[in-house]
Design a protein around this nucleic acid. Sequence first.
DNA 1: CTTGACAGTTAGTTGCGCCTAACTCTTTTT
DNA 2: AAAAAGAGTTAGGCGCAACTAACTGTCAAG
Lengths: 254, 254
Amino acid sequence: MGITDELSASLEDYLEAIYHIIREKQAARVKDIAARLHVKAASVTGAMRALSSKGLINYAPFEIITFTRDGEIAAKDVVRRHNALKDFFVKVLSVDTDVADKAACEMEHCITKPLLERFIQFAEFVEVCPRAGTKWIRGFGYFCDHDSMGENCETCMRTNLAELIQNRKDKGETMNEKLTLRDIKPGKKAKVVKVALADTASRRMVEMGMTVGSVIEVVRIAPMGDPVDIKLKGYHLSVRKKEAEGIYVEEMPS
Amino acid sequence: MGITDELSASLEDYLEAIYHIIREKQAARVKDIAARLHVKAASVTGAMRALSSKGLINYAPFEIITFTRDGEIAAKDVVRRHNALKDFFVKVLSVDTDVADKAACEMEHCITKPLLERFIQFAEFVEVCPRAGTKWIRGFGYFCDHDSMGENCETCMRTNLAELIQNRKDKGETMNEKLTLRDIKPGKKAKVVKVALADTASRRMVEMGMTVGSVIEVVRIAPMGDPVDIKLKGYHLSVRKKEAEGIYVEEMPS
DNA sequence: CTTGACAGTTAGTTGCGCCTAACTCTTTTT
DNA sequence: AAAAAGAGTTAGGCGCAACTAACTGTCAAG
């Protein structure tokens, strides 16, 4: 047994529940854990045996439940994930606290370490960057609700974004079926609708003339789908499969 | 059977796999599905029976697999979730395409509808808001990596953020154990470290004098932990449990 | 000190989603 | 047209995580 032996989502939930119960009351009792997780006591006993056999809690039948050193570390890690996600949802996405909490509860189990760090960093960045900050986030509120505007960005929002918001609503339904460059068969033409690529790749594409609205023709797709050969404004280009998946298009009659 | 009968994560994966295979080849075959999901053929047969009995695919032993109307709708919904998350990770969080794709694969199953919409809206907002946009996101890249800077925010970042970044690193380890106002026992004092609340609630708190660095004393906690009575700069305040959980503090000697 | 009342445990069941092994159906090769 | 190859199925098993039902431990009141 290494550092932490890959816990199941369920066992993580137990760990988290125990952590909070110990914070609030003195000791963790089976009954409380069962109540918190909406589970029957018998299920808790089973979980306790599992956690105990992994060396995360001190447990013997009818006795009190405490963390081992490893267990406390594991529990804190789960709680950290939970809080980081919740904070992100509340502060950046302006979601209601309760909704954020429930969502974090579900998502804390399936987020990878690198991505979690990104979420945390992004929340901090928004807080700290002079170009973003609270007022900017308030602009996002307006973008979503059309009625919770603060002092500053207001006029900009009203004039510049109103039509974009309308636009977005109009094609709301059409967006369900998104085609990417990967879905286009050789010989067919397509118009670029949106480019969803990371910054560097995105810039490269723009330099090659791959802008929204431009028309491209798929020439050939290599055996494994990688790369895709296309023609764009008269030039031949090779696009990686990875990148082709981030280029949303709209099929055109050839 | 209503509109969609609550699919398991596993069945959603099968639906998604079938969708992509049908896009790429003409027909979906058990072998291809098995290969794509890293699963044995026997497992696929089982899943096909389940999907068929839910009325999502047309399936009979040894015959070809196609979507029913309902099935195609359900599959497109899963794909939409996947792509929305992936786009968000790539465009907003500047994560590598492959990492984003894998993460989306896991998270697509446990995200709620309202939150998903927020993710989509936020990505669009960043794209569309004049104060955010690509250059700003590039600033986030710098915040994370310290070396992928574009033209514009550069000087600001270097001068204003350098120390903040350093600061963040310094206390990186301490942040593991985050205390919130909820963890403070009556009679104890605490210093506010961070306020993670939605915009409106956050403003209200600031108006009451709850700023980072201010010292508060917990007077009483009501039976169910709600509300928490505190003393702040001489005034008495009642704080909701929900809000108390978003106020990060650091315990102080009383 | 005995007796409830309640907390906690054990035993056995269920459903899900995967597996292996062995069988059957389909397609291709000779 | 028969045999070999390969695709797909069935049967049976396993681990997980929940459940019910029935049993056992603990503790406080009479």
